[in-house]
Design a protein around this nucleic acid. Structure first.
Lengths: 381, 381
DNA sequence: CGCTCCGATGTAAGCGCTTGCATCTCCGTG
DNA sequence: CACGGAGATGCAAGCGCTTACATCGGAGCG
């Protein structure tokens, strides 16, 4: 996932590769294919992780093939044999060398997770959910920031990524229909989180519905001058998310006979400072809105900052609604549209495992959204 | 990092392992050591990542050894040869198989990151910093939650972890002196972040000093009834952090002739709900404090929630100081002790790379702390 | 001009697993 | 009781790299 030539690491690799590997090699030398004849067989604690599958085989009195099968729950291994192997494993404190297994099997038992802005709460929460499930299944997680280079590479099925990963989980990565098709044609399983993408397995809330909930809430409170702060210009981030949310929101307003002037539409870049800036701009309008819907809680936090700077009171002077239900939102009383982020991550990981099993069925998996009303929203003055 | 027997994954492995590997194997078959005689050599786009080092060697008219050397910037390769190899690599779109390289070299080019509570902002920010640097050096990052099982395993130099990782970065993991010594004796490089541990390379702020800054700030504002909320009971988390901060804080108060009664010391578990709960308990006291120092911003957020629930005004009725400078803190105006979290991660990763290079010098690396005064603190009423 | 020495390559032996086949042992059947 | 077949193992050939050691030209030198 590096976009950088091996500049610095070049020297490093060579400088260091020598000493350690000498040591290892020498330790393992012996008659080829005959096995280390008379090493101190004592299972003492001082030589960690030195046992190989051959040692186990010898200790258990079976072939290495049998050890391998026994350890991986292969069906054709007698229970008694398996026990013998397991006890040998324990005695020798054997731990399989993952790299050897990967090389031999051609499977990396690793899933890549590609996301923009790993810093955001949303993404890291998602990651935690994914990691939780993968870890249980003894899969590794390889995390990559999706700067544009990385994304492009994935889209073109780049080998650098592909070779070390059995599948890829994409977070919020925007995807044109063409790119989606290309992705779907790849032989690597792909799961998209937070977005619904044609021809790909995905997990997300119904963004339109989420936005409708927010709109309805503000309408019911009696607001007429309602603004929306999203993030459109930054093509590096998910695109359906802002689009769908904006559409759903406007739609509902329209049905209620409320129109949102263009001046009420702002870009907050999905960051805290972006939200603050947008709020300031909105408040400088001749007719400022009485309520603002932010497409992420983090932008809403920024808005609260702006309001404080102008000595305005949230929920009274201006109502603010966020999106996500960041843990801080509860603490500061932000009304928001809650989505079960960690669950999305978990489900996504499970779907990935299924796909890797060959059970995968490509389809979209919707999850629940709901509105959490708190003190940041109230009737307009 | 899984603590789970391969229960579910057993079936998976066998069920799926077949189909794909047949395909791969068959594709690669040929006279052993003679090389695939006449495969369609066309560098067409349809067979991704199929080229091996042998293909490159043939294409460039050199031996595989030379290819390997050329690619890893080995000194004894003529520049002209290197160029020939590089162009062959490009033509064939060759990408080295990381697993094979790892197996052959015995180096995993992977660093493990073990932390409690990956959910917390602090940890994920740290992770981002680490990832940034490792990625540049073309190292992989393997993340593990440090539940007690994992931690124990690491402490005892467990092979499962050790075999797939060249070094380990420990975040906030408490370590008794005995355990530290054991760690230091391991052959795996270790870097500790956020804690200062004897005999180990570490990066952290001076926690004592940070706490002093907070204390001084409150004293200067004129507070006399000052409380502290930390997290002590949970041994799973860093221990020096709360200890040092508490010590520094009390110390400074004492010098100013202020004593902190035991009732003013609370455990907030380093979580938002924990902080809220603690704040409530403090406010129920006969003589509630006029200022509270929380050992993390997240706990302080919880406190703000509690204050709002009681309709008290932060900064006027009660002053609140946090620790970390979470991005939300600026938005909501929380006075806090700032530490350069991401930089700590970056520096830690760099130190790890140095250690892996053999340049490592075991020592503690201090980084700056400072106080950021905002509106959550003011003079006592 | 023969010899030493070093830079540049090639040879080939693994690294520690997985797995397609070959074997071998029983057991149920006709 | 011979025979097909399925279950349980063993054999051995790789997987795609890295690297110790051997080899081979020249350049520098006495």
């Amino acid at each position: 996932m590096a976009d950088v030539a091996a500049a610095r690491s070049g020297a490093r690799t060579d400088a260091t590769a020598h000493a350690p590997s000498h040591a290892r090699r020498d330790a393992g030398r012996g008659t080829p294919a005959a096995g280390g004849s008379d090493r101190p067989d004592a299972p003492s604690g001082l030589s960690p992780s030195r046992a190989t599958i051959d040692d186990v085989a010898r200790e258990a009195g079976v072939s290495t093939a049998t050890v391998s099968r026994a350890l991986r729950h292969h069906p054709y291994v007698a229970e008694s044999t398996r026990q013998r192997v397991l006890s040998a494993v324990e005695r020798l404190r054997y731990v399989a060398n993952a790299n050897a297994a990967r090389l031999a099997s051609g499977q990396s038992r690793t899933v890549g997770l590609v996301a923009p802005m790993i810093t955001s709460w949303y993404t890291s929460e998602l990651t935690v959910g994914v990691e939780e499930v993968l870890t249980q299944a003894r899969f590794d997680l390889l995390i990559g920031t999706a700067n544009s280079a990385a994304r492009e590479r994935i889209f073109s099925g780049d080998a650098r990524f592909q070779q070390r990963v059995d599948g890829v989980i994409l977070v919020d990565v925007f995807c044109g229909d063409d790119a989606a098709t290309r992705l779907a044609d790849l032989d690597t399983p792909i799961v998209v989180l937070g977005e619904q993408v044609r021809d790909l397995t995905s997990v997300s809330i119904d963004n339109t519905r989420g936005a409708r909930l927010a709109a309805r809430h503000l309408i019911e409170l009696g607001h007429k001058r309602i603004a929306l702060v999203g993030g459109h210009t930054n093509l590096d981030v998910a695109k359906n998310v802002p689009t769908d949310r904006t559409a759903g929101f406007r739609d509902t307003l329209r049905s209620a006979g409320i129109r949102m002037p263009d001046a009420y539409l702002h870009d907050g870049d999905f960051t805290i400072p972006g939200g603050r800036e947008a709020m300031h701009r909105l408040l400088e309008l001749a007719k400022p809105p009485t309520a603002v819907f932010f497409l992420s809680d983090e932008m809403a936090f920024g808005a609260l900052h702006a309001l404080r700077e102008r000595e305005l009171q949230v929920g009274r002077d201006v109502s603010v609604v966020g999106f996500d239900d960041h843990p801080v939102s509860e603490a500061i009383g932000l009304t928001t549209v809650r989505q079960p982020v960690r669950d999305i991550g978990r489900l996504g990981a499970r779907l990935m495992l299924d796909a890797l099993d060959g059970f995968g069925v490509v389809r979209h998996h919707p999850v629940e959204v709901d509105l959490v009303a708190r003190m940041s929203t109230g009737r307009p003055r």
